[in-house]
Design a protein around this nucleic acid. Structure first.
Length: 902
RNA sequence: GGGGAAUUAGCUCAGUUGGUUAGAGCAUCAGCAUGACACGCUGGGGGUCACUGGUUCGAAUCCAGUAUUUCCCACCA
């Protein structure tokens, strides 16, 4: 038998188990109809992504769920994948090209895509392989990528179907335009950022009344050449007499009219609003109501065009703003400039202010919105924490059509073809299908691709090969769908979660206009959604690579071990709260692993040992001689059942942090600190019963801990075994199983209470001892038991007490002694030392008596209240009465001791 | 402007449907090489449960209001 290291060294076992798990195909998807299915779909990380702190938390949680399910005898599958990351990879490749002095738009679509694919194939798998070092148990052989042939068929089918069903349309509308990445974006991709900007007050001369001006306020003076009107509120007295007149645009001398519209806010700025329909959504709405023209003065890249006038054409929008201000100042129409704080939308990827722009795009009017709401509000899909339901429902209540086309190359090209050289707006010249028209040479395909989220939204069934029925059958769709739990961040509740629910409502099952509750129930993509918190640094900022405040996860794993990191991060993850990351918790995780390692090492050193692969719970129990079980054995086994039952409940409610705390506290406090210490002597003597009890506890702990720390537990489980096999599919006995299995042992339920009293007794004795300066060899403990039961319990325990308090001389007394003492529920404990400071002792006693008096007084007040008796439940009243009795007893004892000292 | 969440020990957080004297870990202080573990063991100190009212025999917990922090949503240019 090889000697175990004093310290657990993660790298000695992690690599070994990672490859063993993969070689043994431990995680491969399979169907076992005899078992219940349990399925998790991994939120596909971007192929451009690298492992960050969020993944660490998110993936660990998923792994805990999936491994726990395996121990619960379920057929569990976790399907991983990657997202093609539309804009993100497009930008990356463009940058790469530009660094090589190549113009992306010049090399052409096909060559661009070749490069993008090459990049993906080379780097795209990195993130999943990084996950291996964390020990995740997903089915690596069954990875799905959103641009896979089969998955793409699903994406396009969804588009075509929605088009046929009348939900997808093409239209010229105001969209969020990113002048950097040159594409339209959805509302969700816009990040509002507060900005320190300026409000410019500018006057326009009223043509009909020379010398009279109307003053407006704007943050964007460069758009003045695009003005088509000035609008005021019809109720506004100041401007009423100007409505219907005209004024002159200060920059280009154009004549525009003054109109009235009741959406204009009177008390903002001057109450007069310049209308620039091509560059502001509100303005567009007003201009449409008044049949005004639209003058678009901006190019796609954010520079101004010829319509802005020769002076401005070609200038970037921000440069144009400066130029406009200069000019307005020069001609004397700029009245004043005010500092002004407003929020401006930025594009997520380009990180530049977005430009509201009129353009021709594809839009989706969301189907099954009502059903998607009911799926959650009627409880078919449960959110953890529940309060996210409100956010979800609120979004669906205010949902806007989704701009799904992107002016990019990397992605799913929109499956729409136009007849060559024909009017695209005529629907007869349009072909919409997955495979394209048969006479494809006469058609040209839409240039745009779909928003990435318009591909990942079919993830829950796309990964199973939808709509290919045969493939879905091969992939066990009907067995695994709906999946059990989705683990993700609340930041993508709209981007992804809500849209997946909508897609599932629309596409699972036959095409129907509306669904009843039963139909909703079978269509849901997942039964539960677990929203993780966001990981923040100590200053409360979100951890991100770009901020530079995020540690490198792989470094952390190298430093603390994968098990330690997993355990540590779960310790910090209070349910549903954002979590402040600190390495201290990882240290705790590492320490926990080490403690587990050493608890096991202790077992191996002190007794005959057989690997857990070779023995079942029943085998272990069979080794117990019932007459050998002592009070601690009874108590720890009963405690184990209780703890398991708590643990099960917590896992069931996804209270992972609480479950980690329970298991940690049972292992460390109940098992290591109490039971191991209390049973040491008997174990060393070779007592087979004690050895078996240790085995029961350790075996159960390994099974329960395996989902949280798979490496160390598999290693310990297989320790001493040549032919090693992962423990992951070993059934873990439930608290109910344990209760039944322990039935033959006839466990004494009073043991728990007695051990609790002994713990108190021990703690108070230790405190008493530590307060004395005397050497332990020169002291002894004398116990005056409260009654005969206490005398027997303590008497039986003296051999253990000697070890636990570190004092050899422990005896009984029936007298009141003038020693330092403490009151316990088993009786008075005296510390017999050679010298005692009487004055000090008296002071201590008096203080203690006073403290008790206070408690007794409060107790008496409560018990003298008649309403307390009539309202409070019996056990509370009894508790109060018992408390009064005990405190009174203790106080009397203390008084007796004090009186002998007077 | 609308909504969510949070506020408990120096720090990070537990605290079930109101019920005995509010807990844990970290940090801190004191002691300890005790034949599993110093990544450990033993003990100590530390809290007016954000504030103000209310309900109740009883409130960290329920209700109302206030304050602070934080996140999301929203077309005041």
């Amino acid at each position: 038998m090889e000697a175990l290291n004093k310290v657990f060294i993660p790298e000695q076992v992690e690599g070994k188990w990672t490859s063993k798990w993969l070689n043994d195909c431990c995680f491969d998807k399979a169907m076992d109809k005899a078992k219940k299915s349990f399925c998790i779909l991994m939120p596909p990380p971007n192929v451009t992504g690298v492992l960050h702190m969020g993944h660490l938390l998110n993936q660990t949680l998923q792994d805990v769920f999936i491994r726990h399910a395996r121990h619960c005898n379920k057929c569990a599958t976790w399907i991983p994948g990657t997202d093609h990351a539309g804009i993100s990879l497009q930008v990356k490749i463009e940058k790469e090209l530009m660094e090589n002095a190549l113009n992306p738009r010049e090399i052409g679509r096909e060559r661009f895509l070749e490069r993008a694919r090459a990049w993906r194939d080379k780097h795209g798998g990195i993130i999943l392989s990084q996950l291996k070092s964390l020990g995740v148990s997903c089915d690596f052989k069954n990875q799905v990528h959103t641009l896979d042939e089969s998955y793409s068929q699903g994406v396009l089918t969804a588009f075509v179907e929605l088009y046929k069903r009348g939900y997808i349309y093409r239209g010229k509308r105001m969209v969020n335009w990113c002048p950097k990445t040159l594409t339209a974006l959805s509302d969700e991709e816009i990040i509002m950022k507060p900005q320190k900007s300026k409000l410019y007050y500018i006057r326009y001369e009223v043509i009909e009344r020379p010398g009279q001006f109307i003053e407006i306020a704007t943050t964007r003076p460069e758009t003045i050449p695009g003005d088509v009107a000035i609008a005021v509120n019809p109720e506004d007295e100041r401007y009423r007499n100007l409505v219907g007149l005209h004024c002159r645009c200060p920059l280009n001398e154009a004549e525009i009219s003054i109109i009235a519209d009741d959406t204009v806010v009177r008390d903002f700025g001057t109450g007069a609003l310049k209308i620039t329909p091509a560059h502001a959504a509100v303005d567009l709405a007003i201009s449409q109501r008044h049949n005004l023209p639209i003058i678009d003065i901006l190019n796609a890249d954010g520079t101004l065009n010829a319509l802005a006038g020769s002076e401005f054409a070609g200038l970037d929008r921000f440069a144009a703003r400066e130029r406009a201000v200069e000019k307005l100042q020069a001609i004397g129409t700029l009245v004043r400039i005010e500092e002004y704080e407003n929020s401006i939308g930025f594009s997520e990827r380009g990180d530049v202010p977005i430009e509201p722009r009129l353009s021709e795009q594809w839009f989706l009017k969301y189907p099954k919105v009502n059903e998607a709401k009911r799926a959650v509000s009627e409880g078919f899909i449960k959110f953890y924490p529940k309060h996210w339901e409100k956010t979800y429902l609120h979004w669906l209540d205010n949902i806007q059509d989704w701009c799904i086309s992107r002016q990019l190359w990397w992605g799913h090209r929109i499956p729409v073809w136009y007849k060559k050289n024909s009017d695209r707006s005529d629907s007869h010249n349009l072909h919409v299908s997955v495979d394209g028209p048969s006479d494809i040479e006469n058609w040209e395909q839409d240039e745009d691709v779909l928003d990435t989220w318009a591909s990942s939204w079919i993830w829950p069934f796309g990964v199973f090969g939808w709509p290919d029925q045969e493939k879905m059958h091969r992939e066990y769709f009907s067995y695994f769908y709906p999946t059990n739990i989705l683990v993700t961040g609340p930041d993508i509740i709209f981007f992804w979660v809500a849209r997946m629910i909508i897609a599932s409502m629309e596409f699972i099952g036959p095409n129907k206009k509306s669904l009843n509750s039963e139909e909703i129930k079978v269509r849901i993509p997942f039964k539960s959604v677990y929203f993780t918190g966001i990981i923040r640094d100590k200053a409360g900022r979100k951890m991100s690579k770009s901020l530079g405040n995020s540690p490198e996860p792989l470094d952390l794993i190298a430093k603390y071990g994968a098990d330690g990191v997993r355990f540590g991060i779960l310790l910090s993850a209070a349910s549903g709260q954002d979590l402040i990351f600190s390495e201290d918790n990882l240290k705790l995780g590492r320490n926990f692993c080490n403690k587990l390692w050493n608890a096991f090492r202790f077992s191996r050193i002190n007794r005959a040992y057989k690997p857990y692969t070779k023995i079942s719970l029943a085998d272990i129990i069979a080794k117990i001689s019932i007459q050998d079980l002592d009070i601690d054995d009874h108590a720890i086994l009963l405690n184990l059942i209780k703890f398991c039952s708590t643990f099960e409940e917590q896992m069931e409610h996804f209270e992972i942090n609480a479950a980690v705390n329970s298991i940690s506290s049972f292992f460390w406090n109940e098992y290591c600190s109490w039971y191991v210490e209390a049973s040491k002597t008997r174990l060393r003597e070779g007592n087979k019963t004690v050895s078996a009890v240790h085995d029961i506890i350790m075996r159960q702990l390994l099974l329960l801990l395996n989902p949280f720390m798979p490496f160390i537990t598999d290693e310990l489980w297989n320790m001493g075994e040549h032919d090693q096999h992962s423990m992951q599919n070993v059934y873990c006995e439930t608290s109910q199983d344990l209760r039944l299995a322990f039935g033959i042992l006839g466990l004494d339920k009073t043991a728990t209470n007695m051990v609790t009293q002994l713990k108190e007794f021990l703690n108070l004795s230790r405190r008493l001892i530590s307060q004395s300066q005397e050497l332990k060899e020169r002291t002894s403990l004398l116990i005056c038991p409260k009654n005969e039961i206490a005398r027997r319990v303590v008497g039986d325990y003296i051999p253990k007490l000697q070890k636990l308090v570190g004092i050899e001389k422990i005896g009984f007394t029936n007298e009141i002694l003038q020693f330092s003492s403490v009151q316990t529920s088993l009786g008075t404990v005296y510390l017999h030392v050679e010298r005692i400071n009487a004055a000090e002792e008296k002071k201590k006693l008096t203080l203690e008596i006073e403290k008790l008096s206070k408690l007794i007084r409060l107790n008496k007040i409560q018990l003298s209240n008649k309403k307390f008796f009539s309202h409070a439940p019996a056990h509370i009243v009894e508790g109060a009465q018992r408390m009064l009795r005990e405190n009174t007893f203790k106080q009397e004892e203390l008084r007796k001791i004090l009186s002998t000292m007077e």
